[in-house]
Amino acid sequence: MKREKGQTKKNFLKGIIQENPLLVSILGTCPALATTKSLEAAIGMGILFTIVLLCSNVLVSLLRKLIPDEIRTPAYIVIIATFVTMVKMFANAFLPELYSTLGVFISLIVVNCIVLGRAEAYASKNTVFDSFIDGLGMGVGYTMALCIMAFFRELIGTGGFTFGQIFTFIPYTALIIPGAENFKISVFQNPAGAFIVFGLILAVMAFYKNRKAEMKAWEIKQAKLKAAEDAKKKLEAQKANVGGQQ
């Protein structure tokens, strides 16, 4: 099969922008609200999630001709649960701080709508390479969305960023804006802050979407007006022409 040029890139970028799983499709919201207290935890969650999504996408698309259509979902659930258990054990062994910070939310990747949804809607119909790219794009898009949320929550909630508490292999660094600790709003570290930040991000996105649509509508209207004016001018010119002839 011949591939269109730039299709891979398009496939990858689609997960980040147009079909961003968290910000556009509003899927996988539970870990997005629960693990975005700090930027580090969000990055850790994103990485674990991406690993699971990649593995399940690749395996599902490898087995797509073997698994009969009727029992697709049970097979996918077993596959995803296996990978989640593996990721959980690796996290427990090699990143114990991350494991204890995320807690039950690593297990909850099993029921994350995105993983099962991509397996059902994409990987079961496409080639291994395409599924891999799709999984990568979706995973990166999800991680980026988590990071955006965690960025605002940690910045406003604590007045800066700390690294090295969860990924212990990097040295402990605290980047606190001088003087900011007097102005931090600690509710952003609480559950309520998560809802506020998520709501505001969605509102900003809706605002730009609306404005884009309005601009488009305005352009169309302008074009129509112009066309009408042109037609009018033409008509007048014709009239004048006719008048002149008379």
Binding site: S25, I26, T73, L116, G117, A121
Partner: peptide, 11 residues
């Protein structure tokens, strides 16, 4: 409406 769950059986 408002639910984009692709894994839903009715999707």
């Amino acid at each position: 409406a408002g639910c984009n769950n692709e894994s839903c059986a009715f999707y």
